[in-house]
Structure formats: C-alpha cells, structure tokens
C-alpha cells in the first residue's frame, strides 16, 4: 500500500473535464451509496416519526354519548396546541428543567474544569490513578447510579441523612425542596469524570512552550491556568455545555426512578418528558402528547440557538 501511495497519480486532480464527468458522477453515486443504509434508516426512524407526530397533533380521539360505543379519530386543527399553550403544568415543568439546567450545567462544567486543571497541574504517576478513580461513575449504568444515590439519600438505609445530623443538619434529600439539588448532585457525580477527561485531553494539546514563556515572565500557576489554559478549552466547554443543556431539558429516567420512591414529590408532570410520556402511555392521549413534544422540540431548538448566539460571540 505504501507503494501505491508513492506513485500518487497526478492524473486525478478534481474537476477534470469531459471524459472524467461520467466517472465523477459514478463516483458520486458510489459515495452516496455508502450513506444509503444510514439515510434510509434516518428517514424511517427520524423523519417519518416527526411527520407522523405532526399529523397526529392535528387529530383527537372523540367518543360520544356515554362513551360506550367506541371512539373516533377526528381532525381538530390546532386545538391540541391551543390546549398545550394554556396548560400550566406543561409550562411549569418546562420552567423547572430550565432553571435546573441553568444551575446544574455551569456547576458541573466548573467542577470538571477544576478537576482537569488539577490533573494537568499534578502530572506524573498519580494522574493515571486519579483518572481511573474519577471515571468510576462513567462505568456505572445510569439507572444503577440513580438507584445508588436514592439509597444513599434514603433516611431508612442510607448514610447521608445521618451525616447531616452529625453536622447538626436536619436535611431530607428526598423532600420537595431538596429534590432538584439531589438530582443535580447525582448528575454531577455521573458526568464530571467524563467531562474532565475531555477537557484534560484538550489541555494536553496545548504546546508547553506557551507556559514556559509565561513562567519565565513570572506568572503564577493560577494565572497560567485561567489566562492560557481555560481560553484554550473554551470551545470544548461550550459544546459540552450545549449538549448537556439539551440532555438536561429532557431529563426523564432520574425523576422517574425518584418517582417510584417519593411519588408525592415527583409528580407525573414533573419534567416535560415525564409529562409527555404520561400523556401518551397513561392517559392514552397520543395526539396531545404529539402536540406537546412538538412544542418541546421547538423550545429546545430555540434554547440551542440562543445558546449558540451567546457563546459564539467573536472574541475581542
């Protein structure tokens, strides 16, 4: 192969004329063919469901009389959207996750960044051990992590309530006031290791000469960290932040699990996805669920756009 590399042909510059055209077209077709399995799957699993959801959101299941003689699906126009627009619970759940994301994501990223800087600062042999230790949560299946924390929080069998008493704190992690901090802690725990690894890898890519010069100028390590290292990993942070926010707005499995332990706190409309899920599978109102999920998708797209706008300011 290295041989064929060597007589790299000069005969294949792009956009050769006439006789090449068919060959190029053929090549394009072949290239497109490679993406075909994915494209077909994408249409079936992404595009058609969205179309289906749009159509469904315009219909409703109606009965008549005593409701004992069967149902009919009828066209209702935008009724479902009008109902959703005024559905306080839906917007409350949206507000809940939005506030949560605004608080949890920066904390998580800040902690991950600090850890990465710490790891970068220490270097040497200890790094490998620390890195494995910090990555433990990533190896834990999501549902298991949630269950473990629920048990740690539990006043019945977990240690944390007692720890609080030790410091004369009377906290109840599963109470209404503590629910979001409890879930937030769980998610931070779950993701800081992985995020740290990504940021750490970005840090490794910085050329050491940059620091040497700064050190020679007498800059402190902290100064180096914040003026050289942090700006360098900004792009990674911004993207991680964006994907974290999109993920958090959709939070589902964690509240659902907490719900089976403290249903009186985590209600069925606690988060948008929980509400959509319950509308679809509990109330059996797929049409309304479709309308809600379309609105939800629009909100996520808007949030992402705004986030992109704010973080992509050209740097001074």
């Amino acid at each position: 192969m290295s041989q064929s590399l060597r007589h790299k042909s000069p005969a294949a510059p792009p956009r050769t004329r006439s006789p090449r055209i068919t060959w190029r077209t053929l090549l394009a077709a072949k290239g497109a063919a490679f993406t075909m399995p994915f494209a077909i799957g994408f249409v079936i699993l992404f595009i058609l469901p969205i179309i289906y959801a749009v159509v469904q959101s315009l219909y409703a299941v109606k009965s008549s009389g005593l409701g004992l003689s069967g149902n009919q699906t009828v066209f209702v126009g935008l009724d479902n959207f009008v109902a959703a627009a005024t559905d306080l619970r839906f917007w409350e759940s949206m507000g809940r996750v939005a506030v949560f994301a605004c608080i949890q994501v920066p904390i998580k990223l800040a902690v991950s960044l600090l850890l990465a800087l710490g790891l970068d600062y220490l270097k040497g042999r200890v790094v490998a051990g620390l890195r494995i230790g910090l990555l433990v949560p990533y190896m834990i299946p999501g549902i298991v992590g949630t269950l473990v924390w629920i048990y740690l929080y539990s006043p019945d069998i977990g240690p944390l309530t007692e720890f609080g008493k030790f410091f004369s704190l009377d906290w109840n992690f599963l109470s209404e006031a503590m629910m979001w901090p409890s879930i937030g802690n769980l998610l931070t725990w779950d993701s800081i290791g992985f995020n740290m690894l990504i940021i750490y890898a970005s840090l490794q890519a910085i050329s050491p000469e940059l620091f040497e010069a700064a050190r020679l100028d007498g800059a402190s390590e902290a100064r180096i960290a914040f003026s050289i290292k942090v700006p360098f990993v900004r792009a990674a942070l911004v993207l991680t932040g964006m994907l974290s926010i999109i993920g958090l707005l959709q939070i589902f499995a964690e509240p659902l699990l907490f719900r089976s332990f403290v249903p009186e706190v985590v209600t069925k409309d606690y988060t948008p996805t929980l509400m959509i899920f319950n509308q679809a599978f509990d109330a059996n109102n797929y049409n309304y669920a479709a309308a809600l999920s379309l609105i939800f998708a629009a909100v996520i797209a808007t949030v992402s756009y705004l986030y992109y706008k704010f973080t992509n300011k050209p740097e001074a």
């Binding site: 994408f42 469901p49 289906y52 959801a53 589902f252 948008p272 669920a289 999920s293 939800f296 998708a297």
Partner: peptide
Amino acid sequence: VFGAVVASFLLPSALLTIPLYLQ
C-alpha cells in the same frame, strides 16, 4: 445529510420515540 445528522442532536427523544412506538 450532514445537516440532518447535526440537527438531529437537538431532537427530543420523546418526539421520535412515541410515534415510532405507534408505528
């Protein structure tokens, strides 16, 4: 195709999964 790939990161899973479930 590539645009669709990137855009799909923004789609909430509930929007896709429930209609897919019905199908």
